[in-house]
Computed example of a mutant assay.
Amino acid sequence: MNILIAAFLIGVVAGLRAISAPAAVSWATRLGLLSLGGTWLGWLGYQWTPWIFTVAALGEIINDKLPNTPSRKVPPQFITRVLTGALSGAAIGTAHAATVAGALLGAGGAVVGTLGGAEFRGRLVRAIGGKDLPIALLEDCITVGSAILIVRFLL
């Protein structure tokens, strides 16, 4: 698959769960699937970086289920998703000499993932009678599964 498509798709993942995309990219770098050594994003492959992102991603997944968690579309959450999408897309792009294109596509993917994910989740919740937890868990599975597929099979 084209590397720019992968950058866009990892951005979509960031739109669903902000920290899952950089966690996946960090693991891909650490495991040698993504070559960022000697670049400005080489720190993504440091020994503890993937673990730190993984703990943060798990915290985000738990936090998403809490009743007072704000919408992903409010400015702080939306901006965070766009930034982590841009970072993750830039990492994929940097490994293939397309940093700026990767960052822009990652950011664009994050916008699509944020707005599309919110709409998808809302429609499914309404379709099953207002129960959010099962749909939130489904979204978690889609997010994590997609992130793994993108970094493992599409790079």
Rank of each mutant, 00 (worst) to 15 (best):
R126T: 06
L149W: 09
G42A: 12
A18R: 11
D140V: 06
R121N: 03
L4H: 14
L87N: 03
V111M: 14
A90R: 10
W27A: 00
G109M: 00
E60W: 04
A23M: 15
A14W: 04
T99M: 07
G42N: 14
L36G: 12
N68M: 10
A28M: 00
W48T: 05
I5E: 10
L66K: 07
D132F: 01
H96V: 08
G93R: 12
D64T: 14
A107F: 08
L66M: 14
G89C: 01
G85Q: 05
G93I: 05
G102F: 08
R123Y: 05
A97H: 15
L4E: 12
G102I: 03
A24K: 01
A28C: 00
L133W: 07
I79D: 03
S88R: 03
Y46A: 11
T54M: 11
K73F: 01
A95F: 07
T80S: 12
G37R: 12
R81Y: 09
G102Y: 11
A98M: 09
P76I: 02
S26R: 04
T114Y: 09
P67V: 13
W43K: 05
A28Y: 09
G108P: 00
A95D: 10
V55S: 00
T94P: 12
A57N: 04
T39L: 04
N2T: 10
Q47W: 08
A23I: 09
A97D: 15
G15H: 13
V112L: 13
A6R: 12
I128F: 09
E139F: 07
N68K: 12
T49V: 15
A103L: 01
T49R: 09
V100W: 14
Y46N: 07
A21N: 12
G102A: 03
G42I: 14
L104E: 02
I3K: 08
L138K: 12
L115N: 02
A6C: 09
I92C: 11
A110H: 06
G106K: 03
S26P: 00
V13S: 11
A90E: 12
A107Q: 01
A107D: 01
M1V: 03
V111T: 03
E139D: 13
E119C: 00
A23D: 09
R123Q: 11
V125E: 13
V25I: 14
Q47C: 14
V111F: 13
V151R: 07
I5N: 12
G113S: 00
T54L: 13
G109E: 02
G117P: 06
V151W: 13
A95K: 07
S146G: 07
K131L: 11
I142S: 06
V100I: 14
D64W: 02
T114P: 04
F120V: 14
L31H: 05
G113D: 02
I92M: 13
R72Y: 03
T114S: 01
V74I: 15
G116V: 06
A21L: 13
Q77M: 10
F120H: 08
A23T: 15
L105E: 06
T39G: 12
T39F: 06
A101L: 03
A28W: 06
T99K: 04
